[in-house]
């Protein structure tokens, strides 16, 4: 499984647009980490799709793409619309990235 994620928009939208998305391959994870990531992905999967930010301004948007066995699912949420499950997955990915 491969997970690609990026952040867009916000006050620093102009700067952020030049930054590449982050990638994580589950092959590079330990057994425990891979299980944990699977659990987090499963928790958000039913809510796939896109949500407009509504009345929020300068909120950041996040896209998480999960590629697994030829299937690809993309989720887009913003600061103003993300569910606790989405926040948990994003937080885990960012934590993992920061530790690398």
């Amino acid at each position: 499984m491969k997970v690609t994620w990026g952040a867009y928009g916000g006050q620093a939208a102009v700067i952020r647009l030049g930054l590449p998305p982050k990638v994580l391959d589950t092959d590079a994870l330990s057994e425990t980490e891979a299980v944990e990531l699977d659990r987090l992905v499963a928790a958000v999967a039913p809510a796939a799709g896109e949500e407009r930010p509504g009345r929020a301004r300068d909120a950041m948007s996040y896209t998480i793409t999960v590629e697994d066995g030829g299937r690809s699912t993309t989720l887009t949420r913003s600061d103003a619309t993300m569910s606790p499950a989405f926040a948990a997955l994003l937080g885990w990915l960012e934590e993992h990235f920061a530790r690398q």
Binding site: G10, Q11, R55, A56, R57, D58, A59, D79, E94, A98
Partner: peptide
């Protein structure tokens, strides 16, 4: 103190973050 390492400030439609 929204989120960890959060590089932004936004207006959520009613309040500031």
């Amino acid at each position: 103190h929204y989120d960890k390492r959060y590089n932004n400030a936004f207006w959520d439609g009613h309040q500031m973050v």
